[in-house]
Structures are given as C-alpha cells and as structure tokens.
C-alpha cells in the first residue's frame, strides 16, 4: 500500500530543515537532512530549493570554505510564514487522518 503526497509536503520538510539552521545551510547538508525522513533522490531536491528561492521563501548567499564558494540557503520571513502555515495544515490533516484511520481522538 502506498500513500501519495504532493510536493507541498516536500516544500514543508525542506523549509523546516533550513529553518533549523539560524545561519543557513547548504545543498548537500539539506539533502542529507531531508533524506533522514524521505527517501528522495538529490535531483528531486534541487528544483524544490530553486522554487522556494524564487518564491522568496529562501534566500541564498555564498560563503568561502576551503578555497571555494559554497552556496548557503537561509529562510526568509516569508518562508517562516509559509512554514507556519504548513505546520498548521499538517497538524489538522494528520489529526483528521489519524482520527479516521486509527480511531484516535481529535484534539
């Protein structure tokens, strides 16, 4: 049995992962962190990061590390709002599904 999820969940997970790093984080690290919960391949994440950047939920800046520039991603205030709303939607979604599927109490 499989459950389909839309790209919104991936957006939410990526935003959440980036938001945990106050000084931002980079592509490889984001991929590793997301992969702890979702088995997505790297090539799925780049378009997500690019889109979130275009939607002004993330901004990017370069940091010099080991003689090269590494691109960092950081959450914007708008990204925080978006994440807030994702959390809220997720909470109500998860509750209704659990209530129906597992017979858990709706809080």
């Amino acid at each position: 049995m499989v459950f389909n999820t839309g790209s919104a969940l991936l957006d939410a997970v990526v935003l959440s992962v980036v938001s945990r790093e106050p000084h931002g984080t980079y592509g490889y690290k984001i991929t590793q962190d997301v992969r702890t919960v979702l088995d997505v391949s790297e090539s799925t994440l780049y378009p997500v990061l690019r889109r979130l950047q275009k939607d002004e939920c993330l901004d990017v800046y370069d940091v010099e590390t080991a003689g090269r520039n590494r691109r960092y991603y950081r959450i914007t205030p708008q990204g925080r709002v978006q994440l807030e709303l994702y959390k809220k939607s997720w909470r109500s979604y998860a509750q209704s599904i659990s209530a129906l599927l597992l017979g858990e109490e709706k809080s």
């Binding site: 499989v2 999820t5 088995d39 997505v40």
Partner: peptide, 10 residues
C-alpha cells in the same frame, strides 16, 4: 513521492 511500508519512495 509516495509513502510505502519501506518509507518514502520517489
């Protein structure tokens, strides 16, 4: 992305 018994799948 799908969620399966084995976790999320692409």
């Amino acid at each position: 992305i799908e969620y399966t018994e084995q976790g999320y799948k692409d």
